[in-house]
Amino acid sequence: MTAVINENPIIQVNNLKFFYPGDARALHGIDLSFPEKNVTALIGPSGCGKSTLLRCLNRMNDLIDGCRVEGEITLEGENIYGKNTDIIELRRRVGMVFQKSNPFPKSIYENVIYGLRIAGEKDKKLFDERVEKSLKAAALWDEVKDRLQESALGLSGGQMQRLCIARAIAVNPKVILMDEPCSALDPKSTARVEETIKDLRDDFTIIIVTHNMQQAARVSDHTAFLFEGNLIEYGLTDQLFVKPQVKQTEDYITGRFG
């Protein structure tokens, strides 16, 4: 646990332990802070707990019956595992993009404003505005602006994933979590999504889980390496990939295991 980054941490993880049902421990006390308006990548071999950690940040793990969390995660200073946390509110502030793109079986337009609609928003003007803004931010506007009312299911895989990004952006979150967003995409679509991620860095804090170290190197400012539920090394991406401090990290990024 080297180099705790101090520039404006928006999310602070303190001694986080996570247990799957049956007391199977997946995270063994993680301390980590995510800086604001930065891209942070979580890397590590399969089963190292990087997705679990990510899903703790918007309490997506609550959907699993019988799991348990110890420790503390603060978002802008507030503990999200506190007694009075409004999960709905939390998830509006921490959006998420999934490994498999999951547009709803609705029109492109309705997909983007879904988050606004369920929040009770009814202003048509705001809808139009947000749809344009979010789709532009996700670099999808030019491709779909003439068929906003068509089903989102007719889009290509890469377009679907960018639509999911637009959908997450539309509710104006502080943080966007991305769980291997490119693993189901071809290289060309991957490149476009990565482009999008880089563009979004100015407005949002992005935390991305990835399998692909080149991708982490390309898009992220900071990188955290996890192994068997422990945080092994955390630092600036440039430093971590060029001069890893820990042997395990070096072994992993040089391809000796994982």
């Binding site: 918007n58 997506m60 998830r91 988050g115 369920i118 929040a119 999911c164 959908r167």
Partner: peptide
């Protein structure tokens, strides 16, 4: 999950 993640 997609729906929950958007705060529904």
């Amino acid at each position: 999950e997609g729906s929950y993640a958007l705060g529904s």
